[in-house]
Design a protein around this nucleic acid. Structure first.
Lengths: 161, 161
DNA sequence: TAAATAAAGGACAAAAATATCCACTAATTG
DNA sequence: CAATTAGTGGATATTTTTGTCCTTTATTTA
C-alpha cells in the first residue's frame, strides 16, 4: 500500500488539470470536469472546498457559478495542491511510526527515506498545475475514461496479507 | 497520507529487527518481541503468518515454539519483507489511479514518480534486515518504548481535509 | 424582491485498513 | 498417551478512508 497521497487528492489533481485545460484562467463547472475525468462528483466537491479554504480556488455561487483558480496554473505547484488537501504535515510522518524521528534518534531507515522524500518534494514543487495539465493532455484523456467503467474489484495477486 | 507501506508491514519490520537483535539466527517469541517494541501482538502475529507463508520465517509450534528466520538476516532485504507482506505489486500501482499507466499512455507524473520509486526500491533492496536491526539498535530502542505510552490522538495541525 | 441556481457544510453510508478473539491443530514433554 | 504450550485460520470488532445525500446559504437574473 505504497501511496503518495489520498484518493481525494488524486481527484483534486485530475479536476484541476482538466479545469485548466478546458478554459485557462476561466471558471469551470465541477459537474463537467468530473464527468469528463470520470471521478466521483460529490467527493470531488468536498476536496474542492478544501482548496477554496486553502486559497487555491475561488468559489462562485449562484447561477453559472463554479470555481476558478486563485493564481495562475503556472504558479501553483503539485506540492501546493497536495499540501492544501492533505495537510501541511503529510510528508513529515516517520515511516516506522516513531513520534519523533529526528536528530539523535532517527528510525532505522530515516536517512534513506529522507533522501527519497527530499528529491520527490523538490520534483513536486518544480511541477506546476499547467505542466501537469499539459502532460495529461499529451497522454491520457481517452485512457482516463476507462477507469470509471472497469470499476470492478481488481483482486490483485497473492500474498494479500 | 503519504506512506511507504501498511501498518502491518511496519510492525513486521520492527518485529524482525528486534527478533534478530535478541538472538541472531535463533528462535524468538512474538510475545516478547511485541512487548519490547510496543507493537500490538495479535495483529503482528497475523503478519508473521504471512511471512511464514512467504517463506521468510519458519514457524515452530508447541512448547518453546516461536519463529526463526528462514534465511540469514543479511540475506533478507527490506524490499523482500515489504513485498512478502504487501504483495508483489505494491509498487506497481499508478499514483493517478490509471489502470494501465505505461508506455504510450502514462499518467501526467509517471516519469517523475517512476524515478523516485526506482531509486527507493534500489535502496530498499540493498538494505538487509541485519543492517536495519543494527540501525535500530543505534538509534531507537528507548525511544520506541514511548510510542505505546503516548498512544493518545495526536490531532495534528490544520487543513485536515 | 422572488425564483432559480450552485456552493457550503453537516449528517450519513459503504468499504477498506487496522486490530482482537477464540476454537482448532500440531508439537513437546513427562 | 495425556497434558500443556504455542501457531493457524476464521470470525468479529473498531477506526479511517472513501463516497453520497440533503439542507442551508449566497448569488444572479428577471
Amino acid at each position: 500500500m505504497f501511496k503518495l497521497y489520498s484518493r481525494g487528492c488524486q481527484h483534486a489533481l485530475w479536476a484541476l488539470a482538466f479545469a485548466h485545460l478546458e478554459r485557462d484562467g476561466a471558471r469551470f463547472q465541477p459537474r463537467e470536469v468530473c464527468k469528463r475525468t470520470g471521478i466521483p462528483e460529490p467527493f470531488t466537491r468536498k476536496v474542492l472546498q478544501a482548496l477554496v479554504q486553502g486559497g487555491f480556488l475561488n468559489a462562485h455561487r449562484g447561477p453559472g457559478g463554479g470555481y476558478s483558480l486563485a493564481r495562475s496554473a503556472t504558479d501553483i505547484s503539485l506540492l501546493d495542491v497536495i499540501r492544501a488537501v492533505e495537510g501541511n504535515d503529510t510528508f513529515d510522518h516517520c515511516v516506522m511510526g516513531l513520534p519523533s524521528c529526528v536528530g539523535k534518534s532517527p528510525c532505522p531507515i530515516h536517512p534513506m527515506w529522507a533522501e527519497t522524500k527530499s528529491k520527490l518534494m523538490n520534483d513536486l514543487a518544480a511541477k506546476s498545475l499547467a505542466d501537469f495539465a499539459a502532460a495529461a493532455l499529451r497522454g491520457e484523456t481517452r485512457e482516463r475514461k476507462r477507469v470509471k467503467r472497469s470499476r470492478a474489484r481488481s483482486k490483485s495477486g497473492p500474498a494479500k496479507r
